[in-house]
Design a protein around this nucleic acid. Structure first.
Length: 255
DNA sequence: ATGGCTTGAGTGTCAAGA
């Protein structure tokens, strides 16, 4: 089974690239973040014509997530239970016996911001919910834009980013708490090149200068991680005209 | 230099991203 996640930064703008990518890579599941579309405007017909079913949970202007799958998806959940949040950042569903949880973790803005406190509360609620989900679905994948670089090797300039949002210790502690539930970072199950990132600022030619962060992840429960055969980042779409600032992340495992 | 791009909303210019 091939899973992928991609923060597209507007599905309206990136739809041609997403359709092209689906055709090239043929994933079983593609999770999208920052679709920035109300559900009424979701391009369901174009996705369907490409051979994919779609679940979507969106809003105008900001946020918005979707799960595209070749096989049918069931038991969809569109929010973290018992966490009141108007922002559309979560979509869970079961595909071919695997629980897929697509997340767009809040950015946080800066460690001094109220949005940072919201991010930490959001991550604590996600952790609580995942304890339940893992009990119900031992074969589980948590995919998305986490807005957290797990370690200094996931940061182009660790000294400059030390303690800053996306790299701060409370954020890394929250991510480690997810690892402590038994989830594993599929990318780190394999030997990887140095300076492997998933996001580069649009400004200052950051992509060309390899000034990025690895903040998009595919976490696998033990049952899936043990049969994982590949974990990688596809930087090709970041080189195209009008790219998303994020690259797709891919993980494969035997079913 | 708190900027630099990109998107959406909306038609002037700002919020938000990371």
């Amino acid at each position: 089974m091939k899973l992928a996640t991609w923060n597209v930064n507007s599905l309206k703008v990136r739809l041609p690239q997403v359709l092209d990518w689906l055709g090239q890579h043929q994933p079983d599941v593609l999770c999208l973040q920052e679709t920035k579309l109300e559900d009424a405007n979701f391009p369901a017909d174009a996705i369907s014509a490409a051979g994919y079913r779609a679940l979507f949970n969106g809003q105008k202007t900001y946020n918005g997530v979707a799960v595209l799958s070749r096989a049918a998806a069931s038991d969809a959940v569109c929010a973290i239970p018992a966490f009141d949040d108007p922002q559309k950042r979560v979509l869970a569903a079961t595909v071919s016996g695997v629980r897929i949880i697509c997340v767009y973790v809040p950015n946080g803005e800066s460690v001094e911001s109220d949005k940072y406190q919201y991010k930490l509360r959001w991550l604590a609620a996600l952790h609580t919910w995942l304890q339940d989900e893992l009990r119900r679905y031992p074969r589980l994948a948590l995919l998305g834009d986490f807005n957290i670089a797990p370690e200094d090797r996931d940061v182009h300039d660790p000294a400059a980013w030390a303690g800053k949002v996306l790299c701060s210790q409370p954020e890394r502690d929250a991510l480690n708490a997810l690892f402590n539930l038994g989830l594993q970072d599929s990318f780190r199950l394999f030997e990887q090149p140095e300076k492997s990132f998933t996001w580069w600022d649009y400004r200052m030619n950051a992509f060309r200068r390899k000034m990025g962060l690895r903040i998009d992840h595919i976490l696998l429960s033990a049952g899936l991680a043990e049969s994982c055969s590949s974990g990688k980042i596809d930087t090709e779409p970041r080189k195209s005209e009008r790219p998303s600032d994020h690259a797709p992340v891919i993980a494969e495992f035997a079913v």
